[in-house]
């Protein structure tokens, strides 16, 4: 008996045509930034999300907000830091509970970062695994094969883990379910130059370049990363 006949028989019993290719949408977790949450709905669990942008574009500010929200939910997070660029003081200031954060310092090796992230995802139990390639040279990050990204995507699939990658440009291509590009709009300075000048923060436009989730349009919300 063919599959088509079986499908028809099931549909006649169940009363109407069925979407046999239906896949439930992944659970979304908030990023901790209301503007980004309202636009994207949050970060999908069991999927790869990329946050991309040049230096000083607000990627790390967004990342720390995401980590702060995750640790506030009592989740354990892992940060695989390819370039050893994580600043614990900055994270603590952003509200990240450092005792719930596993920090892997890869000592300027994207290859080690990739392997460490793979091991952590395979181990399971983390609410979020972040691979920080933010300061990795674009040519090095591009050298990571699509197969490696596919392997990571398959590893995180069907798990409650959010896999996040920070880089200067999108690398995972079709393997990423959500790509958010950060662009700095304008920095906010206060006070007169040479006297009481202060860097107050900057506005970040977070453009959603790609979203595999249904009913989510591409958008570009703006949020402000405040220094004080």
């Amino acid at each position: 008996m063919g599959a088509a006949v079986l499908k028809k028989q099931f549909e006649s019993v169940l009363g109407g045509a069925r979407d046999w290719q239906y896949r439930p949408e992944p659970e979304l977790v908030p990023t901790g930034v209301a503007e980004v949450d309202s636009a994207t709905g949050g970060l999908p669990r069991g999927c790869l999300t990329e946050i991309v942008g040049p230096a000083s574009s607000g990627r790390t500010s967004l990342l720390l907000s995401i980590l702060a929200a995750a640790t506030a939910r009592q989740e354990f997070c892992a940060l695989v830091d390819a370039e050893d660029a994580f600043a614990p003081h900055s994270a603590a200031g952003a509200g990240v509970q450092l005792s719930r954060l596993l920090w892997v310092r890869c000592g300027h090796s994207a290859e080690h970062a990739l392997k460490a992230a793979d091991l952590l995802i395979q181990g399971g139990g983390f609410g979020m695994v972040v691979m920080d390639l933010g300061d990795t040279a674009p040519q090095t990050a591009r050298r990571i094969s699509l197969t490696s990204w596919f392997r990571l995507r398959r590893a995180v699939e069907h798990t409650p883990t959010v896999l996040l990658s920070i880089a200067r440009q999108p690398n995972a291509k079709t393997c990423a379910s959500l790509v958010i590009e950060c662009v700095r709009n304008a920095e906010n300075w206060s006070g007169a130059r040479h006297t009481s000048r202060l860097l107050r923060g900057f506005d970040v436009r977070a453009q959603s370049l790609k979203s595999s989730m249904k009913r989510r349009s591409l958008c570009s919300p703006v949020f402000t990363a405040r220094a004080i």
Partner: peptide, 11 residues
């Protein structure tokens, strides 16, 4: 509770 995203430093 940090309401607004804080400006982060990369070292």
């Amino acid at each position: 509770v940090v309401e607004q995203p804080r400006l982060a430093l990369r070292i």
